[in-house]
């Protein structure tokens, strides 16, 4: 074994099984077994991925055929329903909404609101329920958004207090040197953030991540200035 991380080879049987899977010659039950194994065995999953990359040049055998336009309409209907028009509309993305929300939430209360009910007159999609979960003395609150139609509940950490005062910023803490900013946690994007391209390779197993409380919009200096509210190291699931 080497430590370069480049060794992705497997035993002959694993190589064959992975290759057969990527070629597509296996039966359905065998395909399911391979997929289960990929979930449990990262090394085997890499063997499959390598075959996928190796054989992907065969994709040039597929020409291009434009599907009928009804297909995309159907996809959108199935994913988003009929009524909404754009993912960027709606109060979830509105800063004004979050500001006003903070005025109505008390420090200890769990407040549930229908937000969409006030926004779109007439026909309404199933309105998500939103709750801000907080506790006395805590510097972070959790925002929960429950989508009744899909049963999906999202939790987003936000800085406690008025949103225009504080932001939560996520940092990658290297072995040595100053923490590197990965960005500001924003309620508007459901707790997800896109890691800057130049930082992606630096996040690996064992990396330490930390969240600090910073002035609104993130640290003005590029260095962490506020208190650490949470930290931990990354491990593979």
């Amino acid at each position: 074994m080497t430590s370069s991380g480049q060794n992705q080879g497997g035993g002959p049987q694993d190589e064959i099984l992975a290759g057969e899977y990527v070629l597509g010659v296996l039966s359905l039950p065998a395909r399911r077994l391979v997929e289960q194994r990929m979930v449990q065995d990262a090394r085997f999953a890499r063997i499959v991925q390598r075959w996928q990359a190796d054989l992907s040049s065969f994709n040039s055998d597929y020409d291009e055929q434009v599907p009928p336009s009804a297909v995309f309409a159907q996809i959108e209907r199935r994913l988003f329903g009929n009524m909404e028009q754009s993912s960027r509309s709606g109060l979830w993305h509105s800063a004004v909404f979050w500001r006003s929300l903070s005025f109505v939430t008390s420090a200890v209360a769990i407040v549930a609101l229908f937000y969409a009910a006030t926004s779109i007159p007439g026909r309404q999609p199933a309105a998500p329920l939103v709750a801000e979960l907080s506790a006395p003395g805590s510097s972070i609150n959790l925002l929960a958004s429950y989508d009744i139609a899909s049963g999906r509940l999202r939790m987003t950490p936000v800085a406690a207090g008025r949103p225009e005062e504080k932001s939560l910023e996520l940092w990658l803490v290297p072995e040595s040197g100053s923490p590197l900013s990965l960005g500001v946690l924003q309620a508007g994007i459901d707790g997800e953030m896109l890691v800057p391209a130049d930082m992606r390779e630096r996040i690996a197993e064992g990396s330490t991540l930390a969240v600090t409380l910073e002035p609104f919009g993130g640290s003005p200096t590029g260095q962490a200035t506020g208190p650490i509210v949470a930290s931990g190291s990354a491990r593979r699931l």
């Binding site: 291009e64 434009v66 599907p67 297909v71 996809i75 988003f80 754009s86 993912s87 960027r88 997800e192």
Partner: peptide
């Protein structure tokens, strides 16, 4: 990945002919 539907529509437009094939 962050829920941008316009990007989804564009992704569909540029990639669906290959995937349909």
């Amino acid at each position: 990945a962050i829920g941008d539907r316009q990007a989804f529509a564009l992704l569909y437009r540029v990639t669906s002919p290959k995937l349909f094939s």
